[in-house]
Amino acid sequence: MPGPDDHTGARIKEQRKLARLTQRQLAERLPYSYSLLNQVECGAKPANLDFVAAVAQALRIDVTALTGQPYVTELQQDRLTELVRPIREALDLYDLGPDDTIPGRPAKQLIAAAEDLCAQVRATRLRSAARLLPAVIAELTTAAWRTRSTELWQALASTYRTAHDIAVKLGYYDLGSVALDRMCWAAHRASDPCLAAIRQYMRALAYFREGEYAIGQRLVAAGHGIVGAAEQTREAVAVTGQLHLGASVIAARADQQNVVDTHIAEAKRCASRTGDASEIHWLSFGPTNVALHRMSAAVEMRQYDEALAQARNIALPPTLATSRRAHFLIDRARSEMETGRTEAALGSIVDARHTAPEQTRYHPGARETIKGLVHASRRTPDTLGHMAAWIGL
């Protein structure tokens, strides 16, 4: 179990000292006050993700060095670490051609298996998806090399995207980057501009996590260039809309309100053309996802009252992906905590755990919110105590 000094603030302090900076010197490099840095380092306040990204950028280190990801102790307890190495190996064998030891399954079955893995990740069944993933990658790789089928290359690219999603949700960001490189490789062989644009969108989110907002915006623009040159089908419009949503959150973290408004308006226009397009590449794109990203942008800009006002007006449809539902609850919990609604925040985090336990346990925003609630409570309620123990606090 982590010790009392094993928290994000303590890691910030350690990395600051390694950089030979005083608190005031580091604070001068941040868009945050010296007082907040002091409180975060001593554990009196949680380190929100935007704060952590700003510190990582100032110190020129990876965000994971400050968050402690992947959360190895919890992953070992959940027996998830043993599932990571086979995924890493499957991603490494992409260029060896067909494996003659793998029997051929019909293409329709392999494509259906790839789709099922995407569905499992959206349903936050990470353990099940991670266990099945390496074999599906191996089968699809061999089948694609044997037949050079466009549909199989597309399915393989989609499965690499699933590998990225699993790796990132478990905190293995380096593995996620490898998976995106493989996705690009397969999408190129499939000659699929939409998959190539989605890969740029996901690369942009990786730089968003690291606080490199200008690079993230360039990658989104590259994605628009790719999909904009393709035939403007419903699929292409949905991908275009999702690129705008990604750009809106990046701009929010960069505190660019006008840019946020422009991207949200463009995404809303795309959604009016596609309607609910959640089935397209498992992006969950549609009017509801536009509303959810608008709320997320308010959270990123620390407009917590506005975020809660928006949350009250969002009706989540029963068909919304479990992963998106949990993300909404985590955003709402953060906003409730930041506005002093601690009981409501605890309720939202408990709801997120019930909705998607694996995703919530390894989500850095959820973990920091739980830590913040512990610090804010004069007397820790039993429910909060259980939640704190659950994340290893």
Rank of each mutant, 00 (worst) to 15 (best):
R122S: 13
R122N: 15
L126F: 11
S128V: 12
S128E: 13
A130K: 06
R131V: 06
L132N: 11
L133V: 01
P134I: 10
A135P: 04
A135H: 13
A135F: 10
I137N: 05
I137C: 07
A138R: 14
E139N: 10
T141L: 04
T141N: 12
W145A: 00
T147N: 11
R148C: 11
T150S: 11
E151V: 14
W153G: 00
A155H: 09
A157Y: 08
S158R: 14
T159E: 01
T159C: 04
R161N: 05
R161A: 00
R161V: 00
R161G: 07
A163G: 06
A163F: 05
D165N: 15
D165M: 14
D165T: 14
A167L: 02
A167N: 04
A167D: 03
V168F: 02
V168Q: 03
L170C: 01
G171V: 02
G171K: 06
Y172V: 02
G176V: 01
S177C: 00
V178L: 14
V178M: 12
A179C: 04
D181V: 15
M183F: 06
W185Y: 10
A187Q: 08
R189M: 02
R189V: 02
P193L: 11
L195I: 07
A196G: 12
Q200P: 00
Q200W: 04
Y201K: 14
Y201G: 09
M202W: 14
A204W: 03
Y207V: 00
Y207K: 00
